[in-house]
Every structure is written in structure tokens, then in C-alpha cells.
């Protein structure tokens, strides 16, 4: 089909051809973090059900969550949540018709990425400083 066009430019937005730009990164990350949070919903529900099943089951859950792989997953989910939430605000602003200017969209993409990282670090700092994440099991 493509052979009838002599124009060498790409026919469709294709990630291997397009130069990466920050609005594209934010867009892809929004979908990626959304899918990751779908998995996070299982972790959240498992936490709720574990709490309902009693102290023994809950202890098993917190032991798993407090292990190194568990903490890595939880940190990743925190980052996905912070990014998806902040970038979601960006989408809601767009829905109102504002913020579509090229420079504004690029700046807000950078802002959301940086803020998501800072917020994640802040949440984990709060969890560890005095509050003691690993005491969750009781």
C-alpha cells in the first residue's frame, strides 16, 4: 500500500521513526502507569482482604510487602500512582480546553514528571521517618 507514495516521510506516528519528545513520554507513561495501577488494585484489595482475615494472614501480607521485592513493587506502584494522578490533572485541564499550547504542554509534562518523583520520595520519607513502614504488621 505504501509503495504508491513517493513521499519518504512516515505515514503514521511510529515510535521507531518519531523523535522522542516529552509530551509523548508523558502520554505513554500515563497509559503504562494506568496498567501498572491495575495490578496495584490487586495488591490493595489483597491488603483489605488480609486485614479482614485476621492477624495471622495480615502478618503474612505485611511480611511479603516488607520484603525487598515487595518494597520494590510498592515503590514502583507509588511512583505510578503519583504520576498517573498528577498527569490525570493535566488531562482534566485539557478537557476544559486549556493548556494545549505547545510550550505549555511541554512544560506541564516536565512539571508532572518531576513532581511525581518528588512526591514519591516524600511519601516514602514520611513512611520511614517515625511512622515506620515495617511496623505495619503490628
Amino acid at each position: 500500500m505504501g509503495s504508491q507514495f513517493s513521499d519518504p516521510r512516515p505515514l503514521s506516528p511510529f515510535t521507531t521513526i518519531w523523535r522522542w519528545h516529552i509530551t509523548m513520554v508523558a502520554s505513554i507513561l500515563h497509559r503504562l502507569s494506568g496498567v501498572a495501577l491495575y495490578g496495584g488494585a490487586f495488591v490493595f484489595t489483597a491488603w483489605l482482604v488480609a486485614a479482614a482475615m485476621g492477624q495471622t494472614v495480615y502478618g503474612r501480607f505485611t511480611a511479603l510487602a516488607g520484603s525487598v521485592p515487595g518494597l520494590v513493587v510498592l515503590f514502583g506502584l507509588t511512583l505510578a500512582l503519583c504520576f498517573h494522578l498528577l498527569n490525570g490533572v493535566r488531562h482534566l485541564v485539557w478537557d476544559s480546553g486549556a493548556g494545549y499550547e505547545k510550550q505549555t504542554a511541554e512544560r506541564s509534562a516536565w512539571a508532572v514528571l518531576v513532581l511525581a518523583l518528588l512526591l514519591t520520595v516524600a511519601i516514602w520519607a514520611a513512611a520511614y521517618s517515625g511512622l515506620g513502614l515495617l511496623n505495619l504488621g503490628g
Binding site: A51, Y58, A127, G130, L131, G132, L133, N135, L136, G138
Partner: peptide
């Protein structure tokens, strides 16, 4: 975050 140090009973 506020309930993290309250353990199973607190949660």
C-alpha cells in the same frame, strides 16, 4: 501514612 505505626489493630 498516619496509621502505619499502629499495626494490625490500628488498621
Amino acid at each position: 501514612l498516619a496509621s502505619l505505626n499502629t499495626g494490625y489493630g490500628g488498621v
